[in-house]
């Protein structure tokens, strides 16, 4: 059931695709703000340059946590694209993020520390919704395996509209887009310097950036599952979703963490649960 080839392809291609998406993102963002924007390949130049820099750390152990972070992000993404169990993918994903948080904690720096706390808040803000999404997909397709959901002829999105909206909501948190870029940010304006990533530089920061690319590709893959019955629609949905995310990023200002968790949980608790309850009822009625 698990496809090793897909896993390998993901590990090789995802950073390239993720970097390209980041480049397009910056280009479109710049245009929205009336700027020219950097070249398309700028993210690659940036990361390449990071790897040439001197290895400066607060504590050597922070490198270990960042390495674990990128390894487990890659593992969970590979597991996803090879068709593995969706819940296991989510759990591996959480594990990876805990490593990033621990890396920030390990430096014992005030800005990293607040960033770490906020990153944890973000994790608990989005995790219930992601689990409910997986549960919803199971209820529709009767399988937790990504390979089965992929091959299911059922238009999942028709059964899970509420779940999908909830997922979009937490996607903004996951993509580190404004208004939910609390723990660290793509932009320069951040009251806690760079939050979780404050104390990372050089290759460490480069790894975090690549891990983020892996993560983004995985998340967009997740959107694909909602539309897997028709690859064309699915691709279109991914593009539209990402454009909406860029638009939101550029139109909303950062909110407080209280608002983040409340809104994410309220959406998960209403749209998500109501959607599941309706499905539950229907499956009971139709046997």
């Amino acid at each position: 059931m698990i496809s090793i080839l897909n896993a390998v392809l993901f590990i090789i291609l995802a950073p390239l695709i993720g970097g390209l998406i980041a480049g397009i993102d910056r280009k479109i963002t710049a245009r929205m703000q009336g700027r020219m924007g950097p070249p398309l390949l700028q993210p690659f130049y940036d990361v390449a340059k990071l790897f040439e820099k001197e290895n400066v750390v607060v504590t050597p152990s922070q490198n270990y946590y960042v390495l674990s972070y990128i390894v487990f992000i890659a593992v969970s993404g590979a597991l996803f694209f090879s068709g593995g169990d969706l819940l296991l993918v989510i759990f591996a994903f959480t594990l990876a993020h805990i490593f990033l948080v621990l890396g920030a904690y390990s430096t014992n720096s005030p800005y990293s520390f607040i960033g770490a706390e906020r990153e944890l808040i973000q994790i608990i803000a989005y995790e219930p919704m992601i689990i409910l999404s997986a549960v919803g997909m199971y209820m529709v397709t009767k399988s937790f395996f990504v390979s089965d959901i992929m091959n299911s002829p059922i238009p999942v999105i028709v059964y899970l509209p509420g779940i999908f909206i909830g997922f979009l909501m937490v996607l903004t948190i996951k993509l580190r887009k404004s208004p939910f870029d609390l723990s660290t940010s793509h932009h320069a304006h951040q009251e806690i310097v760079k939050g979780v990533t404050t104390e990372f530089s050089g290759s460490g920061l480069g790894k975090i950036e690549i891990a983020h690319w892996y993560e983004n590709v995985f998340l967009l893959g997740f959107i694909y599952l909602f539309f897997a019955f028709n690859p064309v629609i699915a691709l279109a949905a991914i593009i539209v979703t990402y454009l909406i995310e860029i638009f939101i990023d550029n139109t909303f200002s950062r909110v407080k963490w209280q608002y983040t968790i409340k809104s994410a949980w309220i959406v998960a608790g209403t749209l998500g649960i109501v959607n599941l309850a309706v499905l539950y009822y229907l499956s009971g009625v139709m046997g």
Partner: peptide, 24 residues
């Protein structure tokens, strides 16, 4: 639902404890 929300709550209190003990 309880597990989805409760599970993520557990993540919070355990990881902040972990973070505390591993700060250098």
């Amino acid at each position: 639902t309880i597990l989805a929300f409760g599970g993520s709550i557990t993540v919070l209190f355990w990881s902040k404890w972990m973070g505390k003990i591993i700060s250098i």
